[in-house]
């Protein structure tokens, strides 16, 4: 009987693998659009930015390129950051970029994000987007993080079961049939209607300022900031104190970090950690930078050094910069990246 079970499993696995070849990338926030665009133009870029909306809405590659040019470095960069991207999803995305073997890519600028196994896209645990990054490698990494968190055993078991299910759903292409069918019929579309067109991607190199969105869906965030300016200032004032807190890295997921660096190194690229201006401190990232675990770090989440990033004039909301803020951040990034790119060139 065991033999037949093995045969059934083989039939299942091989068919699932074949089906997985035609499962399209999730369309949310232009994830698929950016990946497809980069796939087509992979050999044209030297720098890629990966992360969440804080990078998507905060880094304009054209200005980065201009900043680099001012420093005597000719390079092209692209913004591959996507709204709602979590640490593990970013890691998956980096691996997918590396798999494409882009010939010129020398630097991957990655937003600093914790290896938090329980942060999911829009809080929807079993969304297509969460399922999508649950490759066996990412799942093992997520499980490692699950068991490194201080929590009751029942939580560990529940979280592990959730990741195992997500991985199984990924491998078995669960609920992907309608998406495959629509894609084959050429009717695939972003369920949230936020996909970027090829023209937009070519023109803006993946950047889109929140000020430019006409849908108004982010306006409540803006209104929240305007209504709570004192609260925001208090949060900003607390950043230095938060950054000064002692950090225990004994349970940090160094394996995941090491694998990420190795993946980038396999195509000769360097990983740079970016700390964009936010509203909370990032002591863990600073400690990792201090200890050398992060080889290169660009820290702009510092109200003392960059006070204007924390003023309303350059902010769209508590978490994101507006167009003016993004322009300045991009200019600074261009200047700060130049020495590294000079070396790699």
């Amino acid at each position: 009987m065991c033999g037949y079970v093995v045969l059934a499993a083989l039939g299942f696995a091989s068919t699932s693998w074949l089906v997985s070849r035609v499962v399209p990338w999730p369309e949310d926030y232009g994830l698929r659009a950016k990946y497809d665009y980069f796939k087509q133009h992979k050999d044209e870029y030297d720098v890629a930015f990966v992360g969440s909306s804080r990078l998507f809405r905060g880094v304009d590659p054209r200005i980065v390129d201009a900043g680099l040019r001012e420093q005597g470095v000719e390079a092209r960069s692209i913004n591959l950051a996507i709204g709602g991207m979590t640490g593990f999803e970013s890691d998956f995305f980096v691996r997918e970029i590396v798999r494409l073997e882009p010939a010129r890519l020398k630097v991957i600028v990655l937003e600093d994000q914790p290896w938090d196994p329980n942060s999911y896209f829009l809080g929807n645990t079993f969304s297509s987007r969460n399922v999508f990054w649950h490759t066996p490698a990412e799942t093992v990494s997520a499980l490692r993080s699950v068991w490194s968190v201080d929590a009751p055993l029942t939580d560990h078991v529940e979280w592990s079961w959730t990741h195992a299910r997500l991985c199984a759903m990924k491998l078995a292409n669960v609920a992907q049939g309608p998406r495959i069918a629509l894609d084959l019929l050429g009717k695939s579309r972003d369920p949230l209607r936020r996909a970027l067109s090829t023209e937009q991607l070519a023109e803006g190199a993946g950047f889109q300022a929140l000020d430019d969105l006409i849908s108004g869906e982010f306006n409540p965030w803006r209104e929240k900031l305007l209504a709570n300016q004192e609260g925001f200032r208090a949060m900003v004032a607390a950043i230095p104190e938060q950054n000064a807190r002692p950090v225990d890295l004994s349970r940090y997921n160094f394996k995941a970090l090491g694998a990420q660096h190795a993946a980038a190194a396999s195509i000769g690229a360097e990983l740079v950690r970016l700390l964009p201006p936010g509203s909370t401190g990032q002591p863990e990232a600073l400690e990792l930078a201090r200890t050398g675990a992060y080889a290169h770090t660009l820290d702009y989440n510092d109200p003392a050094r960059f006070p204007r990033f924390f003023e309303l004039e350059w902010r769209f909301d508590e978490h994101h910069l507006n167009r003016a803020g993004a322009q300045e951040l991009s200019r600074l990034i261009g200047i700060d990246l130049a020495p590294l790119l000079k070396r790699t060139h």
Binding site: L7, F12, T15, S16, A172, N173, A175, G177
Partner: peptide
């Protein structure tokens, strides 16, 4: 049978 399950699950 294994193949049939693999072709079924995408339609959940």
């Amino acid at each position: 049978y294994g193949c049939a399950w693999a072709l079924t699950l995408p339609w959940l």
